[in-house]
């Protein structure tokens, strides 16, 4: 069985009139990097919450179908148990931060998983170094800028060394260079350590190069699931308002005019390369 398996899963929040997820089926294998995208309100966050058991254990409601994490049905597992496999970075970082300073925040997760104190300290230092958090070490998580909070929230989740990282719009408050830096770190952990990544993002120009797959959602359903170049060049993607890279948009416009490039470009450099190639043909 896949590491993460959504099997015909539906969910309706308590008191809501309509389903937030409708018969969602997808599987994510170990080592994959999957990007989830789709219009605001389509169910991305709800799907993330199912992966670590917040749905249905914390957010209650009607459920049908099943979600399996590493073979375990999330209906039967506790959130604490699932935390040893799945680490979730919340969409709103402020809601994730619970301690009195950044150092404690980074230690909190591993401590709760029962990691020995010495290793906890080591992980905290590694994360402070990796995410440039030294100047924030002593700060209160609620007395920081939005971007600083988001870096700390990512750090706190990475300190768990999760088998599966689920990150819900983890760059939304980051300046463009920090966004690139954090995404590079995630891509590296994916490639080098085999960490499985499920990441929600609207800015696909930032992640398309790292992702092995893009899952496109609309109105609680998965409407496309494939490699980035295929999903991004589908008409439906532009129709429902996905943040398609500019280079891919140029490709689409040229195609409409009868000008074909040999593949779908994801970046400006790649576009220039393909144009050069087409010119020489």
């Amino acid at each position: 069985m896949a590491l993460v398996e959504f099997a015909d899963f539906s969910f309706k929040y308590l008191g809501a009139d309509s389903l937030a997820l409708r018969k969602v089926s997808a599987s994510v294998n170990e080592g994959e990097y999957v990007v989830i995208t789709g219009p605001s309100g389509c169910g991305k966050t709800t799907l993330c919450r199912t992966a670590n058991g917040l749905v249905p254990h914390f957010h209650r409601g009607y459920i049908a179908g099943n979600v399996f994490i590493d073979g375990q049905n999330t209906r039967d597992a506790t959130v604490a148990k699932l935390a040893s496999t799945v680490g979730l970075v919340f969409q709103n970082p402020a809601n994730q931060l619970v301690t009195l300073n950044v150092e404690k925040e980074l230690a909190f997760g591993p401590e709760n998983l029962g990691v020995v104190p010495e290793e906890v300290r080591q992980r905290v230092e590694e994360i402070i170094d990796l995410l440039n958090l030294e100047h924030l070490r002593e700060k209160h998580p609620h007395e920081m800028s939005g971007g600083e909070q988001q870096r700390v929230a990512m750090g706190a989740t990475l300190a768990l060394k999760p088998k599966v990282l689920v990150a819900d719009e983890p760059t939304s408050n980051l300046d463009p260079r920090s966004a690139e830096l954090i995404l590079d770190i995630i891509a590296n952990l994916n490639k080098r350590n085999g960490m499985t990544v499920i990441l929600v993002e609207h800015r696909l120009d930032l992640v398309a190069k790292d992702a092995s797959r893009i899952i496109l959602m609309d109105k609680g359903q998965i409407i496309a699931d494939g490699i980035p170049r295929d999903v991004l060049s589908m008409d439906i993607s532009s129709e429902i308002g996905v943040g398609i890279p500019k280079a891919t948009q140029v490709y689409k416009r040229l195609q409409a005019k009868g000008i074909e490039l040999s593949r779908v470009p994801l970046t400006g450099e790649e576009l220039a390369l393909l144009v050069g190639e087409a010119k020489r043909r």
């Binding site: 300046d175 463009p176 260079r177 690139e180 500019k246 280079a247 970046t267 400006g268």
Partner: peptide, 15 residues
Amino acid sequence: CSLTLPQLTVAARAL
């Protein structure tokens, strides 16, 4: 200021 070039500028420069 930790900014990056706009996507279209990257494309225009590469072209």
